[in-house]
Design a protein around this nucleic acid. Structure first.
Length: 503
RNA sequence: GGCGCUAUGGUGUAAUUGGUUAACACGCCGCCCUCUCAAGGCGGAGAGUACGGGUUCGAUCCCCGUUAGCGCUACCA
């Protein structure tokens, strides 16, 4: 028998880390087992679901590199794959259950039951549906139905224990005493989650249900539905929750938590996939944690997945991302960085010259970056150069207080101002001249140069920065990149005037 | 409140399934490299396995309680 798994998100927005991992584990399992991966959209909650969110889910999944064999957009032999298109099916199936006396029409007022429940809760008791309509005769029910009394269809929960074996948690047992006669079909005619999943999973012939831990307590209810239909339940595998750094459930307030967030940040999809796979799973000792999906899926084993919740560690994601960034072909990086640079307002239309410049930019900044959007930030802070502001920075003030530092700046300005200087090619010569004429060397030589050029005490090698400034100044960008001469001379001037007229 | 799940350094995971100086990775600290910050290389600190009881010659591993976190307890999914 071939394995069939499914990922069944609700279209309520971008994919979240928890869902992304559920999708990934399903996908890994399907690929490893040469099975079928089906995508199903659970949109029975009309208040939260929106059709446009469905596309977001497809996009996120595709971006991460996952594909599916069946789904609303791809079709398949077990469709439709949107719950909203299966409403009639759920209703029919529920009616079958009523016919076989496994379920019943219930006319109890929701408000009244709720009131009972809250009384019970206040008394510290477990509330269960009292069974009022359970014993209604078929005729009585029919008449009330004909009178269009509002009603739901509820399952007759059988007494006794419910056992199942979870692939990650092992043998699990629940007592049905705690389970109320659950609603299958609501007053509105729409199915409830716990009912619809079962109908879908069974009819779509899903063999393994791999989903979040939060469904573990729902599983016995669903098994009851399988039993009522005389369907064999699938295998279950419940994945642990992903927690935020404070050990509470991961949510927006923990910062970036959706696939979209990471994409915008400039995290590579391979990195995100790799990291998420590491949440609750680890390769054998001594083997690298950096591995492709192929490698992960090759020895992926659901029973090896951790039962305990995992804290999402941005730092480790960044570490993995840095790794993939280094391996990423330059051309691809350039095209990823372009939109980020456009956002900061530095570039508009891109031609081959600009691309070349961006390539240099990446080369200079990449080693010190966790994710691509930092390249745009760094470009912004280093290319914007306002001498009057720079000259007031504490780090500049401190560094220029060192004896000989101002001479270095002045001499550098002088050297750069010589006519016909080919700054990029002669940079080494220029520095050598400054060195010879000021007698400064090492840190005392380079530190002032760096400051006069960039305004900050740290950053990429000057050899990389100089061509960046020179070439950038020739380009017609949205903002002007100042060349080296302009920077140093502007700096020297601002410095002098700040000294003579301290504010 | 009831029911369930989980519990190994700061974080993610190992520990041949009762016998190890409790391992690896991220992070952190230090050193080397270096004009600087990164990157890279090298080294180090950090847990006696949530807590308390058992069982056993011996418990990270088995059992029981406690605590904490999370989930379910809906006509949300």
């Amino acid at each position: 028998m071939t394995i069939r798994v499914r990922f069944a998100p609700s279209p309520t927005g971008h994919l979240h880390m928890g869902n992304a991992r559920t999708a990934l584990f399903n996908w890994l399992f399907a690929r490893k087992q040469k099975g079928t991966f089906v995508l199903r959209i659970e949109d029975t909650d009309v208040s939260r679901s929106e059709a446009r969110f469905e596309d977001l889910i497809y996009q996120d999944l595709k971006w991460m590199g996952m594909d599916w064999d069946e789904g609303p957009d791809r079709g398949g032999a077990f469709g439709p794959y949107r719950q909203s298109e299966r409403i009639e099916l759920y209703r029919q199936k529920a009616l079958e259950l009523v016919d076989s006396d496994k379920a019943f029409h219930c006319f109890c007022a929701e408000a009244e039951l709720e009131a009972q429940a809250s009384v019970a809760r206040a008394a510290g008791l477990t509330w269960r549906y009292p069974g009022t309509c359970r014993e209604l005769t078929r005729d009585a029910a029919e008449t009330r139905l004909r009178k269009k009394e509002p009603s739901v269809i509820r399952l007759k929960v059988r007494p006794g224990a419910i056992h199942f074996r979870d692939l990650v948690h092992g043998a699990t047992e629940f007592n049905s005493d705690v389970i109320s006669d659950l609603v299958l079909i609501r007053t509105t005619g729409l199915p409830t989650y716990n009912y619809a999943v079962v109908v879908d999973d069974a009819l779509m012939e899903i063999t393994h249900v791999i989903r979040g831990d939060d469904h573990l307590s729902n599983t016995p209810k669903q098994i009851l539905v399988y039993e009522a239909f005389n369907w064999a339940p699938p295998q279950f595998a419940h994945l642990s929750t992903i927690l935020g750094s404070d050990h509470s459930r991961l949510s927006k307030r923990h910062g970036a938590t959706s696939v979209q967030n990471f994409q915008e940040m400039g995290i590579l999809p391979e990195a995100l996939m790799n990291y998420i796979a590491l949440l609750g799973w680890a390769p054998p000792e001594g083997e690298s944690e950096i591995r492709t999906n192929e490698e992960i899926s090759r020895n992926f084993d659901l029973e090896k997945v951790s039962k305990s919740p995992a804290v999402f560690d941005l730092g480790k994601l960044f570490w993995i991302n840095r790794h993939y960034l280094k391996e990423c072909p330059a051309g691809q990086l350039v095209s990823l960085v372009i939109p980020l640079l456009q956002q900061t307002g530095w570039i508009g239309q891109v031609d081959a010259m600009v691309e070349g410049w961006i390539d240099r930019l990446i080369e200079a900044f990449l080693p010190r970056v966790d994710h691509l959007s930092q390249i745009a930030d760094m470009t912004d802070s280093i290319c914007s150069f306002d001498p009057d502001e720079v000259v007031r920075r504490v780090e500049v003030l401190e560094a220029l207080a060192v004896p000989g530092a101002t001479e270095v700046v002045r001499e550098l300005g002088f050297q750069l101002s010589q006519p016909d200087k080919k700054v990029v090619h002669e940079w080494k010569k220029i520095v050598a001249a400054v060195k010879a004429n000021t007698g400064q060397k090492g840190k005392n030589l380079f530190h002032p140069i760096r400051l006069a050029l960039t305004g900050t005490a740290s950053g990429p090698e000057l050899d990389k920065l100089v061509p960046l400034f020179e070439e950038g100044s020739q380009l017609s960008l949205l903002k002007k990149v100042k060349d080296c001469r302009e920077r140093v001379c502007g700096f020297a001037e601002a410095w002098d005037s700040a000294q003579t007229s301290p504010r």
